[in-house]
Amino acid sequence: MRTLKAIFDFYLDASVHVAIAVISMAGVTFHLLGSSSDINLMGFIFFSVIVCYNFIKYGVEAYKYLIVSNAYHKIIQLFSFVSFAFAIYFLLKLDKAIWMATLVLGALSALYAVPLLPSAKNLRNLAGLKIYIVAFVWAGFSVLLPVLDAKIALDWDFAVTFIQRMLLVLVLILPFEIRDLQWDDKSLRTFPQVFGIKNTTRLGIGLILIFFLMTFLKDEIHQNEITLRLILSIALILVLVSKKRMQSKYFVMFWVEAIPIFWFCLFWWTENYF
């Protein structure tokens, strides 16, 4: 039992779970496009998310994460370096359009943690900007890159889907901000810091409603998309109203981040059995 817990903790601590969540959202995009998933793109997204998140988690946000030992930290570092090598391997198999998009998204991710000048602030420390940068980068990896890979025009439906994905990520981040209220510097001006927990929950529910209703703005709606977005929206609302559970490490790091995986499984299940 102790070994299983250690493996599970590493799965969470090394950002494998969040990487699966991001490729799940990319998988949903491929389903919406009616296109087969590109294993090279999915591999690149998976390993690059691990590298990016571990860099941020154990760099600029290390104060939030308790590392049980220096040896454990070294193992995560080694895992991150190996993941970086795999990310480059898969990136080299992709089109140059994806390289350019990745360069922009990567620059935003880097500026989130590293300032341009020694005396300057990074994007994370610019009041209120942190959550929007994360949402944009997630949407870029899970919507823009699959669309570029499928060589589909960046049309109206793409714009709607991109904004919806940003809204989804914003909502998914709120439980983390509520959990981290006791640790985050007040200069970050997170939603719970500015509006309080109750109003942040109300804001999240409002964003979920917008996320769902925007589906009707699309020119082409995927089969079962409305139903599956409704199920997803209900799941998100249930998470937001579970305030007490947000203080649990496993509730936020596992169950909240598992929502995109659940969403992808719904798409896969309906397309294969209905």
Rank of each mutant, 00 (worst) to 15 (best):
T3G: 14
K5G: 05
F8K: 13
F10D: 05
F10A: 05
D13K: 14
V18D: 01
S24H: 04
S24L: 06
M25C: 08
M25V: 03
A26M: 05
G27Q: 07
G27L: 05
V28A: 08
L32Y: 11
L33G: 13
S36D: 13
D38C: 11
I39N: 11
N40H: 12
I45M: 00
F46E: 04
F47Y: 13
S48F: 15
S48D: 08
Y53T: 10
F55A: 13
Y58T: 03
G59W: 04
V60N: 06
A62M: 05
Y63Q: 08
Y63F: 10
Y65W: 06
I67V: 09
N70H: 07
N70A: 09
Y72F: 13
H73M: 11
H73F: 14
H73K: 13
K74Q: 12
I75E: 08
I76E: 04
I76L: 10
F79P: 02
F81R: 11
F81V: 15
S83F: 10
S83K: 05
A87T: 09
Y89P: 06
L91H: 11
K96H: 12
A97P: 07
A97N: 14
I98W: 15
L103H: 07
L105K: 08
G106P: 07
A107V: 12
L108N: 01
L108G: 10
S109L: 01
L111R: 10
A113P: 00
P115D: 04
L117S: 12
P118V: 11
S119L: 10
S119F: 14
K121L: 14
L123F: 14
A127W: 05
G128C: 03
G128Q: 06
G128W: 01
K130P: 09
I131A: 12
I133G: 03
A135W: 02
W138I: 03
A139F: 03
G140Y: 00
F141R: 03
S142M: 00
V143H: 02
A150G: 13
I152A: 14
A153E: 13
L154D: 13
W156I: 09
V160N: 08
I163K: 02
Q164E: 14
L170R: 07
V171L: 12
L172G: 11
F176I: 09
E177W: 06
E177L: 06
W183F: 13
S187F: 02
S187H: 04
T190H: 03
T190R: 01
T190G: 04
V194G: 01
G196Y: 09
N199L: 15
T200R: 02
T200H: 00
R202K: 13
R202A: 10
G206I: 05
L213F: 14
L213N: 10
K218N: 10
E220F: 11
E220P: 04
Q223E: 13
L228K: 09
L228M: 12
L228P: 07
L230Q: 09
L232I: 07
I234R: 01
I234M: 07
A235M: 10
A235Q: 11
I237K: 01
V239K: 00
K244M: 08
K244H: 12
R245V: 03
S248V: 01
K249V: 07
V252G: 02
M253I: 00
V256L: 04
E257I: 00
A258L: 11
I259H: 04
P260T: 07
I261G: 04
C265V: 12
L266D: 02
L266W: 04
F267Q: 08
F267D: 07
W268I: 04
W268C: 01
W269G: 05
E271Y: 13
E271P: 04
